[in-house]
């Protein structure tokens, strides 16, 4: 049994919250560079250049890439052979969010109650925490600041088996088409297929952690990703919705077995500020 202090977790989360908000991942930057090369619209080409310039300013000035520093979504992979000492794990994580958002001059965007009251909690807590128990004696923490504009474009389609592959394609294309300019394209489209309602939504979001350009290792799903990307880019939405040939940088599909009656499909959209940062303790 390996021991990890709760304070160590807090410090790691505080650091990850800041780094995720300041540093755009290299794979996203590269994808933006490629998009700027292939884009046919001169206006979109120019705006893609400004988006990359923004990432550069954020990185050098240690400023948030986007003022919406997100709801703090946190993925934990907890090795079953670790023991957290000196405090509660989730409390340690929320303390890390509190410190990171304060120290990094990050915007606090959480309100205490979703309707009527809506008073800001002033420290961006509570974090949205997902926990997986895995083998081993490590703790992996991934911090994903998720902006409200793109999150609001999420969709769940409770399809049934007869809808088939085409039903999936139609649903994803519909979700992106209706989202239009709202989720700050170029976007990354997270798609969950299978499981139950909540599982497919989790799959869609978690797929956004994948490096841009990497495909699902299963060939059938990788083919679906490629077809979806082509279809989504044919919508003509373009960077910021100004009209162009690149609407999405990637479509990531994750699949889970389903009930004999069900074929749920979820879409979770990520804006171009595809922020995430991880650490292994």
């Amino acid at each position: 049994m390996r021991e990890i202090k709760a304070d160590t977790v807090t410090e790691a989360v505080a650091r990850l919250c800041q780094e995720a908000n300041f540093f755009l991942p290299d794979d996203v930057y590269e994808a933006l560079t490629k998009a700027a090369e292939s884009e046919k619209s001169p206006v979109c080409k120019q705006v893609l250049g400004q988006i990359m310039e923004n990432a550069h300013i954020a990185r050098t000035e240690l400023m948030p890439i986007c003022q919406d520093c997100g709801a703090t979504v946190i993925y934990l992979e907890v090795g079953q052979d670790i023991h957290i000492t000196g405090g509660d794990l989730y409390a340690a994580i929320n303390e890390g969010v509190r410190r990171g958002y304060d120290k990094g001059y990050l915007r606090k965007s959480m309100v205490n109650q979703p309707f009527t009251l809506r008073v800001n909690t002033k420290d961006n807590t509570p974090a949205i925490i997902h926990t997986d128990i895995v083998s081993g004696d490590k703790l992996k923490i991934t911090v994903v600041p998720k902006g409200g504009g793109s999150e609001n474009m999420s969709r769940l389609f409770m399809l049934t088996p007869s809808d088939g592959r085409q039903g999936i394609i139609d649903s994803v294309v519909k979700a992106v088409d209706e989202a239009g300019s709202n989720p700050c394209p170029p976007i990354i489209v997270g798609v969950g297929i299978g499981g139950t309602a909540e599982r497919t939504l989790e799959l869609a979001k978690k797929s956004l952690l994948r490096k841009v350009g990497e495909h699902n290792p299963e060939r059938e799903y990788a083919e679906l990703e490629k077809e979806l990307l082509k279809r989504v880019n044919a919508l003509g939405i373009g960077t910021q919705g100004y009209g162009g040939t690149v609407t999405a940088l990637a479509v990531n599909v994750e699949v889970f077995p389903a009930h004999i009656a069900s074929m749920p499909v979820a879409v979770n959209i990520q804006c171009h500020a595809a922020r995430h940062k991880e650490a292994v303790l």
């Binding site: 988006i51 400023m63 300019s181």
Partner: peptide, 13 residues
């Protein structure tokens, strides 16, 4: 008017 969504650091200048 639209400003560039997700370019908050650039716009702040």
């Amino acid at each position: 008017f639209a400003a560039i969504g997700g370019a908050g650091a650039l716009i702040s200048q």
